[in-house]
Design a protein around this nucleic acid. Sequence first.
RNA 1: GGGGGUAUAGCUCAGUUGGUUAGAGCGCAGCUCUGAUAAAGCUGAGGUCCCAGGUUCGAAUCCCGGUACCCCCA
Length: 1447
Amino acid sequence: MFQKVDEARFVEGEHEMLRLWSERDVFRRLLDKNAGGPKWSFLDGPITANNPMGVHHAWGRTYKDVYQRYRAMTGHELRYQNGFDCQGLWVEVEVEKEMGLGTKTAIVEQGIDKFVHECKKRVLTFAARQTEQSVRLGYWMEWDDPEELRKLASHIGDEETLTLQTPKGETASGSAEELTARLGNPQWGGSYFTFSTENNETIWTFLKKCFERGKIYLGHDVMPWGGRAGSAYSQMEIADGRKLTTHRSCFVRFPLIEEQDGTTETRRHGGVPEYLLVWTTTPWTLTSNVAAAVNPDLEYVRVKAQTRGDEEPAYYYFAKENLEFKRLEREFKEGFGRPEWQWPDGLDKLKTISQIFKEQGKYKVDGTVKGEEMIGWRYAGPFDDLDAQNQPTGYPDRTSQLQIYADRWSQPSFTREQLAKDAKKLTTAVSLDDAPQVPNSLVEDKALTAIDEQQDWIDKKLRTEWRDKLEEGPKLISGLLEAAKSVGILTSRLVDYDTNFSELDRALRNLGMETAFARDWRALVAANESTLTVGTTLKHIYSVQPKSEEGRQALQEWVGEAQPNLTPELINSLSLAIERVFHSLETELGSILFKSGAEAHHVIDGGRDFKGNPHVVAGEGTGIVHIAPGCGDVDNQIGQSIRLPVIAPLSEDGSYGPGFDDRFTGHTAVDPATADLVFEQLKEKGHFVYVEEYPHVYPHCWRTGEELVFRLVDEWFINMDWREEIKDVTRAIEWLPESIQGQDREVEWLSTMRDWMISKKRFWGLALPIWVNPNDASDFEVIGSLAELKERAVEGWDEFEGHTPHRPWIDVVKIKSEKTGAVLTRVEDVGNPWLDAGITPFSTMGYREQPDMWEQWYPADFVTECFPGQFRNWFYSLLALSTMMRHGETDKPEEKRPFKTLLGHRLVMDETGQPMHKSDGTAIWFEEAAEQLGVDTLRWMYLAHNPASDLRFGTRHPDEPVTLNTPEGPISETKEGLPTVKVTSKPADDIRRQVLIPLWNSYAFFVNYAVADEFAPTLEQVPLADRPEIDRWILSRLQELIGTAHESFEAYDVATFVAAATTYIDDLSNWYIRRNRRRFWRSKDASDTDKTAAYQTLHEVLLTLTKLLAPCVPFITERMYGNLIGDTSPRATSRGSNAGESSVPRGVARGLGGEHSDSVHLCEYPSIDESKLDLELNRKTADVQTLVRLGHRLRESAELRVRQPLAELQFAASDAAQASALEQSADIIADELNVKMVTRSENLDDLVSYSFKPNLKTLGPKYGKLLGVIRKELPEMDGALLAPLRNGKPVTITLGGEEVTLEPDDVLVSTEQASDWASGDDGGIQVALSTTLTPALIREGMARDFVRHVQQARKDAGLVITDRIRIFYFTSDADVQIAITEHEESIQASTGWKDKGVLRPTDIDEWSEYIRTETLSDSITHTTAKDVPVEPVTIGESQVAIWIKPA
RNA sequence: GGGGGUAUAGCUCAGUUGGUUAGAGCGCAGCUCUGAUAAAGCUGAGGUCCCAGGUUCGAAUCCCGGUACCCCCA
């Protein structure tokens, strides 16, 4: 039997269901049930186990859960493996804070082992926490017991032998460290942890494969560095450690030089020496200067000035704008952006450059020059006498590392021979005899036609479709382009369509290469006065490679017309020039690479940052920036892009290394005395111009306050030159939602990404399996597994054994080089954490140890993740790692892909669309939302949202603490000690109001009547054919919904299903139940088949709906389901007291209605019952609803409330079938719209008038320009002329002097108002509603108002639906009204009174029986007593007091 | 600088192969229904469809140029 239900109490209900699931072990039974079913492989992107979950995590986890649940209900076997991301800096930073450590040194001093243990503990602790939160979300995974995880956490680092209970029910023993290392293995089950030995070892396997393909190399990168701590700092740490400080900044001058007759001379202008004016805040870096950067677009001045101490005047170059620029003017007034960062006391305002020169003497502006023209100028550096400046390759010597680059450049495709050959092809291509073959997908005919017709087509193709073809196919320029790209000197602009020669010219000058070839280029351009571009020429010739004679001619013609300058002679000289340039590049590359700092000094283009802003701007400095790639991040980037030598002056302790002789070696960079030293030297050499105190915000160590410097450090990279393989794999994957073009974005990233830096100088993470010769960086090996390591180990293995392959334990193992026999030591670095997450398709599915299992589960069918950022993080690492792992195992991209379909979703934002941050208290913790808004509500909100756009979740109110009722009891702070506060969410409120409450109310309606009526679902089913149409309709609509559900889930587009379900729930609540209420009220009568049909229909609908919605809202559906199947065990009502001893047998519900499972989640997902699907009926009902809506609209505009009965409604429909269908539903329409009569008419000509408009879509093609006239005149024509059109007959008329034949489809007819009838049309249905009221209708309307007020009174009195009452009423107008009645006729005539009335006792008497039936009342008493107990209400024109008493 | 995307109501966004009066949700205003539900339903106000040019009988839609914002890359 059903249990009565009242308010939904969603959150409480969710807690009850969590208990129920765990008591009945539902999840475990689901696994058993589906074991052996078809497999559906989901791969979880690991969540960082470093903090508790917020609402932003819950979106993705809801997707993961909902698609898994759907697959489970359709019988699939799943892995249900959650993942935790465990290693990396995020954890280290938090643990450092916890342990009160500030520096890497501090970590080393108190023991890396201890630190790593703490990291493991933290991860385990938060894994436990996130597990609990996920369970609360209803996220079904094979979860580890959080208590077991906490137990492990508390024993990490001790030797005690523990016994672990695994999720699959096994027990395992060992130390906490041993057990932890094996978490998530297939035998145990449970979440995978990326710190597991299997995960780390599988990454080793990957890196070994990279190594075997020659992709691992040692490069370098500039990092913020603390000398005292002896360590690098992360971006995160820097953000915390910025401080306002004052440094001595200086203006220095670099003398320009030039070659004259083989010797290098100071450059002079009119006999006066010329200098670049340069400014820096870090004088110590001047020792390591290699270049000076300008902005090519800026204007520079040449100023003649004589500074103090100079014998003669000199010319200075600097940005024109800077001469009078008031430096730090705003900061002087307003400070540096934070309240505590005000201009330092006692510090003067900065001087302008003009002032500085004036103070030292006179100056005069003598000409300007564009930055562009300065590029390539050579100068002498201020410290060119230092050894470090004269070391080839820079300092320290990087010859061995650079050899790796050099090797790459000498690959076959870049050889001189190859380049020459390619260039030759260019020549021959003009005659088109020996053109290379066209890539086969280039459709020739299409191309040729297009060439003839318009050049645009080609342009477009070039930019889109052919791009890939050009890159993929055998092609003329590929060698040139690849060579150019790989040396990083010629940007992709060289090959871009709109690139012109000057780009190449600039690139060459930027390299400091004033080569014969560059000059050739320029001469070539000048001689031809050509606007022809390299890209245009090469691409056009190369991309259209006609095979037929006809095609060749077409191309030649096109070349002749479109590119008149492109003569065979020009092509020839172009090709020769290209050949020479690249030959030159090849031969000169070495010298670029192996140049010393001193040799490299020249003016370069500063380029632009990632936002497109130039690195060099006018303003603060001089517009000429001193570049020291070994001392600055940006400097290093610029340097790398044009292969400047790198001088890295600092040792680990932050002092100058030995290459800086006795002047600097050993001095600390941040020591102010070092600056003095620099100034002294500069003065001595005549480079010094001016020094000043300069305040700025500068990075400091966030704990010790020590000033940081930028230092060049060695890092390990994977050469990603196999990107094309990854692109192929990327294209074999379905990327959803389509609108975000994920595949294109990923391919784009793969095309432009740089080599992958995989090392990190930290402690907690993957131990990079790279063993290197301490004396020769090129002598290194990569180890692929622990077994291999054990075999190769020459020392340290015994010490290591028994520990996880983490620092510090792994560091002691040493091997012997196979190449040189030297003892190799592991590099101390740990790995990039994206390796950890990217290897999981292999590590979690048994790639290494259980190939059978791996075969079954790889590739994953589905992954889903928040996409911003992941294209270059997780998605990228998955793709890259899989591609490499599968290399040599298969050639097919679809067998290499790690997953088949990816669903991305965007971010969770606050109510205003701003990101939520933990730091400012706007990030909403999971519990706060779950316990205040309800998890089902949250889930629906996530699922309904378009994954391609940000979700505006709501607002956290940090000032309003709340106590939350959680499954574990009330809390007022999180386990981390943060107070829980109020959370509001408009979308959540909307969903609860519009979806979940109506759903619940529909269910409650059914259950409560079923209880009252003792309806038994076991009754024999009323045959479908015997049920009323409306029953068949709601069941038919249900089948439609089932279809939508399957389609949506299969397409990973659950939002479509959720939207359809919302509409269905509305149909159910606001149409089916509302229209059928009366069928449920009738007295008990077992033979009332109509009533039985109603119950059975609604029962079926609700039961099916719970199953359909179960994946989306697992809690509310479970509650409803239990009651709907008549499960009387302690569920819906349980408070837990007797729940534990529930005697319900597993898998069988004891209740009504035959075979049901005892959980909706163990049910099969519904499938369409075709016999119940009647699309015709669905359409028809939709028409009725349309008509009713239209009727309501008409009543609205005529100001006739629905309770007021009207005499008649007439309708007509152009479609006869539609009209007769509506006619069949006349009673419904009459009832809904409260009209006495519903009449179908052929037309409404007598009641309405029509207006006619042309159907432009059909007439446009027929009449073209005449349309303007038709459009204007047709509506003005006599309706009678056009009347036949409404009966489907054509009409011929004369418009604009032409005869026009109009078919019915050519004209759009709409309905307009006539008197006494309100009329309108919608969807081809015309309706007219009689607005004339008779006194009888008015009286009936008042009677219905009366009933309405009695019902309100019943409700206010809290009566049950079966309670009987007596009614009393009083109306003060009674006497007057009697008088009125007598004169009714005349009053009506004189006032036009027609739609209002006064309520008289006689009216009540007239409707007495109706009123009593409707309100279950035994009597209606009119009283004349004045002291009424209630406020009167208005009925008609009367004030009436109505009150009730129990019968 | 290069590539991609977006621009439509106060807000968030739809808008089919070009077609008539450009829609939805929220918000606002008004009204209505209710014997399960003050749940909801209906109506209304509110738009130079970013700007300019072109193609076309006809452009929010296609093309070209510009502006603004976002993303990716260097």
